[in-house]
Write a protein that binds this DNA or RNA. Sequence first.
DNA 1: GTTTACCCTATAGAATATATAGGATAAAGA
DNA 2: TCTTTATCCTATATATTCTATAGGGTAAAC
Lengths: 136, 136
Amino acid sequence: MLSKKTKYGLKALTYLASQKDNKPVQIVEIAKNENISQKFLESILLSLRKTGFLGSKKGKGGGYYLIKKPNEIIMTDVMRILEGPIAMVPCVSLNFYEKCADCPDEVSCSVHFLMLKVRDSALEVYRSNTLADILV
Amino acid sequence: MLSKKTKYGLKALTYLASQKDNKPVQIVEIAKNENISQKFLESILLSLRKTGFLGSKKGKGGGYYLIKKPNEIIMTDVMRILEGPIAMVPCVSLNFYEKCADCPDEVSCSVHFLMLKVRDSALEVYRSNTLADILV
DNA sequence: GTTTACCCTATAGAATATATAGGATAAAGA
DNA sequence: TCTTTATCCTATATATTCTATAGGGTAAAC
């Protein structure tokens, strides 16, 4: 399941991407329009800022804005920040690899084999979609 | 993330599929060979029996065995029983559909749009792989 | 200097996943 | 029939993660 964090984060990004200009948008505006808890959204936007997706401005007229252009924001990067690994098991993860404790040999593991295919297919989708592509 | 339940269930299925004959295999044997908690595995096998994947036999010489042939066991079906929805959000699920509470209109939702693609790609993998295909 | 709005950490509450306990039931074989 | 074997079943404990809230701090604008 997609976490709410990811869902809300994606919604906030698309909300910002669909603005006419790139002026700062306040948290409260995004929260209201997308039906998100304001404080929860705040922590999500904060992590998107720290990872280089968003810029922010304090004080009156402040808010968050996109740093890159929507067509430069690739879904793989967004998903890894918000959701974590794209792979469903750590042993097939490119960016979050971990050996399975219970598996003596992952080469001969059916779960590993299947999940490798699932990861590749998901990766293909995320790689070929930017924020601009998913604006509907 | 793939739940342990699914992981263990898949491992048990492949263990059974790789038997020479289709005689009942005891829980304890599977549990030891695949490093799974015996009692936890028990509840997983039980649910696989109730959903028509496994048969069981009580008493001495008893155990679990596959009901269908490995090449007739499609991963979509297995995954839906063990893991639940294949979709990452209920609003794009074929078998577990639910409307998002926070979304006024899913047609104009970017998350919906993206996750539809992810679901389709995952579905393609699961549909084209049977238990026989993932034996390595 | 007052208002506005982001910044930051800690933690509480809820949900889910994982595992365990303890006995009931049925089959097989002596 | 009696004993052993092994599945059947329900309830509950434990751990982890997710989601959200609380409460104040900091910087910018006017």
